[in-house]
Amino acid sequence: MHNENTSKGVFNTPNPKTLDLLLNRRSVKARDMVGSGPDKETISQILQAAMRVPDHGKLAPWRFIVLEGNEKEKLGDLIAEALQAENNASETVAEKMKGYATQGPVLIIAVFSPSSARPIPIWEQWLSAGAACQNMLVAATALGYASQWLTGWASTSRHVAKGLGLCEHEQIAGFMFLGDHPEEQPTERPRPEFDKQVYFGFPEA
């Protein structure tokens, strides 16, 4: 399962196609994904890429829960239960929200799991978790699969977190949906203007 180059200690091999992928990657709405999505071996490759991110202190402040098939329906039930428990939502609203978890073929729950083993600021650990999620999107695209990173109310619910076995200090960083590409490819969305976001040189006072 390990990449042959990295297992031999060959790193940072130039690959111009990677830049093209980064400049053209586009999220696909989970509800539009088709097919069965990546198999277990491919999911493992995507997660290996997720774990090769900057990680100050080597704390690995993230972990992942993979849900497929009926397991996603269990999450849907948990979300509905949480809505009623925390928000006093009606049964109708709660029932509708069950579909959130079953939008795409495969769901990887990225869990932010900070560590106090070393004095690394919490915000740096959050950045590492975010990088892991981004690596998943890039890896999935590189392997020919559609992907989308979602958060929303369920990602902050302690009822949902507890139901997934998260500890008190852990939090859901994202619901990462993976699947096959739909027949219609996604269109481009508005992007920030380069000159408004980038300044070359030391900023003037």
Rank of each mutant, 00 (worst) to 15 (best):
V28P: 04
G99I: 11
M136L: 13
A132Q: 01
L59Q: 11
L19P: 00
E71T: 04
V53N: 02
W153I: 03
S116E: 15
P190M: 03
Y145P: 00
A110C: 08
H181N: 13
E193V: 15
R118Q: 15
P182A: 09
A154V: 06
Q185E: 15
C167R: 14
R189Q: 10
Q45R: 15
R191N: 05
H159W: 01
E193D: 14
F177K: 09
A161R: 07
N24A: 11
D55G: 03
K96G: 04
V160M: 07
K17E: 14
P61V: 04
P121W: 07
A82N: 05
C133T: 05
I109S: 00
W123D: 13
A139Q: 03
E183M: 08
F175A: 02
V160L: 09
P192F: 10
P121F: 08
E4Q: 14
V10M: 06
Y199T: 14
P192E: 11
R31F: 13
M136H: 07
R158I: 13
V111M: 09
M176P: 02
T13H: 09
A205K: 12
N3K: 07
Q84E: 15
E193M: 10
T92D: 13
P203T: 07
R26W: 05
A110R: 01
A140R: 06
P186D: 14
A49Y: 02
A82K: 02
T102G: 05
G69Q: 06
D32V: 05
V34I: 15
N70T: 11
N70C: 04
C167I: 10
N88K: 09
A89G: 06
E4K: 14
P192G: 11
E91F: 14
H56F: 01
A30K: 03
E81H: 13
R31I: 06
G9P: 04
G201C: 03
L143D: 04
A110T: 03
G152E: 06
A140V: 13
D39H: 06
E168C: 03
F11E: 01
F112C: 08
R25E: 00
I109M: 06
P192W: 08
I108L: 09
F194S: 06
E68V: 12
Q171V: 12
L83C: 07
M97K: 15
N15T: 09
A131K: 01
V106A: 09
Q171I: 10
T156K: 10
G57N: 04
D20T: 12
D77H: 11
G99V: 12
I120C: 13
A60R: 11
F200G: 00
E188C: 09
P114W: 00
S90I: 12
